[in-house]
Simulated scan of single mutants.
Amino acid sequence: MSHPVIPAALPRQTMVTRLRARYFATPRDTVVTLVFAAFAAWVLWALIDWALLKATFAPNARDICRENPEGGACWSVVSTRWRIVLFGLYPFEQQWRSGVACIVMVVVAVLSCVPWFWSARRLPPLWIAGFGIFYVLMRGGYFGLSDVSEQNWGGLSLTIFIFAAVCLLGMPLAIIFALLRRSNLPWIARTMALVIDAIRSLPLLSIMFTFAIVMPFVLPDWAIGDKLYRVIVGYALFFACYQAEIIRGGMQALPGGQEEAAKALGLNYWHRIGYIILPQAFRNALPPTINQFVITFKETSLVTIIGFFDVMASGRAASGTADWNFATIEMYVFVGLIFFVFVFSLSRYGAYLERRLGVGRR
């Protein structure tokens, strides 16, 4: 009796072998690799030399920075005026509240990454409770905290507040819009499609201006509210229309037989949506959803154009005085680093979820 021949296992490629195959396979590849490696090394060394080796870090060292003959970075502007970037116009003696509020929302975001919270019964209460604590700490008026109006909010805390509020309002709206868009009643589906397409065709800045400037002229006095909240509502509506189309795309990717099977089992509409359709739709739509959150966080900087003192405006104000106007690059690098930390963390977590759930790969 003959035995089947088992092919010998191919030898595993070492890192050196892979690098040689990718970057040094031909003489031309070798030249290109060495040229770009030399250029990258030169840029990296110049950056390290400017940002670290020749830099000034001591606070209140404005004169030293001006007279620095080596031309290094002046991080003294950051160490001196970082409070403006993080807290804006928030009262100095109460800035601990703003800092604790930001930490609370960061903890909520971290807990949202824990699989135990991935259910409709746990995740929304977590965000609502975290956002409520954030608002109480920022606004005050309760538990012996002094009242601080929204006009004095600013910096990173205002950026986080706008982002969290937009997501809390926009995500439920997006689910409702997506379900209405898929309604079996043509007049509902077509009307919702018209609304979504109309809002998506407008720039976000025009929607912010409309809700901030125009709405007070058409709303009754009792419905006007603060400009900040009107802008958040407009931004949430914009977010919801984009996210609704993302969710609808995730629904359309599902096999039609699943919903038919659920009907055959006697499940009602809300059970089919809540237990079968939406969970799989969110799984299918995970990559664009993460991208939408990233875009939403970055576009909070647009509120500076309509008079809000967010982290971008705070950074500009911190280095915009006559004493520090020579250090604007360093301040913008610091603000960019703040955005990078939040956005990069969100992007990497999205990539982890894609690997865990097996989506976004072909």
Rank of each mutant, 00 (worst) to 15 (best):
N325G: 04
V108A: 12
Y269G: 04
D221C: 08
L145A: 00
L169M: 10
S183M: 05
T321F: 03
F209M: 14
C65T: 05
A178M: 00
A165W: 03
L168P: 08
Y135R: 10
E260H: 08
P11G: 06
I277Y: 00
V303G: 10
F309L: 03
T321I: 11
I276L: 04
V100E: 00
F297C: 05
I247Y: 03
V78R: 08
I213S: 14
K263C: 10
A253W: 09
P287S: 11
Y269E: 07
A198L: 15
I224N: 13
S319C: 06
A174G: 11
A61T: 05
I247L: 14
L52S: 14
A41K: 10
L353A: 13
I84E: 13
V32F: 02
E354D: 09
T300H: 02
S157L: 01
W50G: 06
S183V: 06
G132A: 13
M1W: 09
I188T: 01
F282Y: 15
T300R: 02
F342D: 11
T80N: 04
V77L: 12
I48G: 14
M312E: 03
F211E: 11
A262Q: 08
V43M: 14
L89F: 14
L123T: 10
I84S: 12
L179I: 10
L168G: 09
A21V: 10
W187Y: 06
N268R: 02
G360C: 08
T321P: 06
V106A: 04
F39Q: 13
R356G: 05
S201R: 13
E93N: 09
E67H: 12
R348Q: 13
I277Q: 00
F87Q: 04
V343S: 07
I128V: 15
V5W: 00
M105S: 09
G249R: 07
R181I: 02
I103P: 05
L52E: 14
